[in-house]
Design a protein around this nucleic acid. Structure first.
Length: 465
RNA sequence: GGCCCGUUCGUCUAGUGGUUAGGACUCCAGGUUUUCAUCCUGGCAACAGGAGUUCGAUUCUCCUACGGGCUACCA
C-alpha cells in the first residue's frame, strides 16, 4: 500500500520554520515511499483563519518545492461530513450531549480542583435529555471514554507511548454552537482522506490518545503516527516570533534558497547516516528515514544555516543565481548585460551566504563607489600613492588586452621593476575601484570592469584624495 | 498540580556493554591570498547527577534534577 500523508496547517499566520520542517518530513517520507503528500487547511477557527494566510502558506510550500498532490482540502468545506460522524457517535451512544454550562463546569472545577470533566451528563435518562432539548438548552457533545485500561500506540519516532484511560476525561468533540473541535475534525479528515501515516509536531503527542479513542468509537482503522521534535530557539523554548525571524517568507526575502533551507531543516533532528551534510532535495528524498529522527528538540542555529546556504550557493549555476537574485530584486544588474552579471556571480558566490549577501557585495561592479570610509582611506592612501596610481594608469593605458592574467603579468612586471610590494600598489587600487579594501581578485575585477571604467575610477580617486 | 516525552562538546549530531567517545557548525591558531571571504591544516570543547545490574557501564534498569509538551466549547 502506498502511504498517504498530509501537512495540516491552520491558516493563522505565514508558514514558519517549524511548519516547513513538518511539511518537509511529510514530503520526504511520502516521496521516499512512493506515496502521496497532501495538504489540508485547518480553518475551523473562523476568528483567526484567513484566506490570505492560506495563500501565503501555499506560496511558501510551492517556493520550497514541496508540491502537494490532489486538491487542497479545506476543513471549512467539510462541515457536513463532521455532522454525519457526530450523529453516528450520538446514535451509537459512543458520545452524548452535555448540557452543563461553562459556569457550572467552572464551579465543579473549583470544587474538585481538577480540570477533568466529572461526567455530569454521562448517564442521564432520556427524559432528562428530552426535557433540556425541549427547553432549547445549548449542549456540547462529549465522547464517552473508557475508565479502565490504557490507550497505547507505537510512535515511529518515540516508540511505545501509553496513557491510562483514567487520565482521559469525556472530552468535548463538538462545541455548543455545533462546530466540531480539532481532535475530532482531525480524525474525521485523516480517515476521509485515507491518511496512512500521521506525521506532525510532538506537541500533538498528548492529543493522540484522545484521537485514538475517536477512531475506535467510529470503528475506523488507525493510521501510524510519527511525532517530530520541536525546533527550539537559543533559549531552548519552542521557536516562536520572540526568537526573531521564523517565517519562511523572511528567509526567502533574505536570499536563502529552497535547497539550502530544506537541507538545514532536514538536518535538524535527522542525519543521513553518513557524514554528508550538503544535500539537495533529491538526495533528501532518497535518504530520508523517519525512524532515524531524533527525539529531542533541536536548537535553530543561524550560523550553520549560513554555512549550508553558502555551500549551496557556491555550487549553484550562475544563470540560476541570476534569475533567483532577480526574483528578489528585479533591478539587480539590469544596467549591464547578462554575461557580465553571470561573471559577477561567479566571482562573488564563493564568498556569499545568501543571494542578498551576494547582491550586497557586488555593488561596485554596477556603479562607481561612493562614501569612502575615512579610516580605509587613511590607511591605504599614503603620500606616495598618487605617484603609484599615475603609473598604474599609464600601464593600463598601454595594455591592449583586458584579460585578468595579462593584467596580472603587467602589474607584476611593474612592481618588480620598481621594487614595490603588492599591497603598496593593490590596496589603493582596490580602494579606488571598489570603495572598500577587500573582495575578490583585483585582476578579475579590473578585467570585468573594463579599461574605461577602471581608468575613470582611478582618476576619480586621484582627484578626491 | 496531573499526565506524556526528552537529556553525548556552546549548537546540530555519530557511536558502542570494554573506543584516544567520531564528524559538522561556531570560536581560536597557522597556511594560502594584494586584502577580506573561500579553501587547507591544527586546536579548544561533551556522555546531567545518584543508585543498581555487570568482571566492566556513556551504552541496560530505577530514582533525582533539569528541559519541553499537553492539560480549553484553540489548532
Amino acid at each position: 500500500m502506498n502511504p498517504r500523508v498530509r501537512f495540516a496547517p491552520s491558516p493563522t499566520g505565514q508558514l514558519h520554520l517549524g511548519g516547513a520542517r513538518t511539511a518537509l518530513s511529510n514530503f520526504l517520507f511520502a516521496k521516499n515511499q512512493g506515496g502521496q503528500f497532501l495538504v489540508r487547511i485547518e480553518d475551523t477557527d473562523l476568528e483567526r483563519s484567513k484566506q490570505e494566510h492560506t495563500d501565503q502558506i501555499c506560496d511558501s510550500l510551492s517556493w520550497l518545492g514541496l508540491n502537494w498532490d490532489d486538491e487542497l482540502v479545506y476543513q471549512s468545506s467539510r462541515t457536513d461530513v463532521y455532522q454525519e460522524s457526530l450523529a453516528l457517535l450520538l446514535d451509537s451512544g459512543k458520545a452524548y450531549r452535555c448540557f452543563a454550562s461553562k459556569k457550572e463546569l467552572e464551579k465543579v472545577r473549583e470544587e474538585t480542583g481538577s480540570y477533568q470533566y466529572t461526567g455530569i451528563w454521562r448517564n442521564r435518562s432520556n427524559s432528562e435529555i428530552e426535557k433540556e432539548l425541549g427547553k432549547g438548552t445549548a449542549f456540547t457533545i462529549r465522547l464517552r471514554t473508557p475508565d479502565t485500561d490504557n490507550t497505547r500506540f507505537k510512535d515511529i519516532i518515540y516508540g511505545e507511548i501509553s496513557v491510562s484511560n483514567s487520565e482521559i476525561d469525556d472530552f468535548i468533540v463538538a462545541r455548543s454552537n455545533g462546530s466540531p473541535v480539532y481532535n475530532f475534525t482531525n480524525v474525521v479528515d485523516d480517515h476521509g482522506m485515507g491518511i496512512t501515516h500521521v506525521i506532525r509536531g510532538d506537541d500533538h503527542i498528548s492529543n493522540t490518545p484522545k484521537q485514538l479513542l475517536i477512531y475506535q468509537a467510529l470503528g475506523w482503522d488507525i493510521p501510524e503516527f510519527a511525532h517530530l521534535p520541536m525546533i527550539l530557539g537559543q533559549d531552548k523554548k519552542r521557536l516562536s516570533k520572540r526568537h526573531g525571524a521564523t517565517g519562511v517568507q523572511t528567509y526567502r526575502d533574505e536570499g536563502y534558497q529552497p535547497d539550502a533551507l530544506l537541507n538545514y531543516l532536514a538536518l535538524l533532528g535527522w542525519n543521513p547516516g553518513t557524514e554528508e551534510e550538503i544535500l539537495t532535495l533529491e538526495d533528501l528524498v532518497k535518504k530520508f528515514d523517519l525512524s532515524q529522527v531524533q527525539k529531542k528538540g533541536a536548537v535553530f542555529d543561524q550560523k550553520k544555516l549560513n554555512w549550508i546556504s553558502g555551500q549551496h550557493l557556491s555550487m549553484q549555476d550562475n544563470r540560476d543565481i541570476l534569475s533567483q537574485a532577480r526574483a528578489i530584486n528585479s533591478e539587480w544588474g539590469m544596467t549591464k548585460p547578462d554575461d557580465f552579471c553571470l561573471a559577477v556571480a561567479e566571482l562573488i558566490k564563493p564568498r556569499s551566504k545568501s543571494l542578498v549577501d551576494l547582491m550586497g557585495q557586488s555593488g561596485y561592479f554596477f556603479h562607481d563607489p561612493s562614501g569612502f570610509d575615512e579610516r580605509d582611506v587613511r590607511k591605504t592612501w599614503k603620500h606616495d600613492t598618487p605617484e603609484i596610481i599615475e603609473s598604474v594608469i599609464s600601464i593600463l593605458d598601454s595594455i591592449s588586452g583586458e584579460k585578468a592574467a595579462e593584467l596580472e603579468t603587467s602589474f607584476k612586471d611593474y612592481m618588480e621593476a620598481n621594487n614595490l610590494g603588492f599591497a603598496k600598489v593593490m590596496k589603493p587600487v582596490r580602494l579606488a575601484l571598489c570603495g572598500n579594501v577587500n573582495g575578490p581578485s583585483l585582476f578579475e575585477i579590473m578585467s570585468l570592469l573594463g579599461k574605461e571604467t577602471t581608468l575613470s575610477r582611478l582618476r576619480m580617486a586621484l582627484n578626491n584624495f
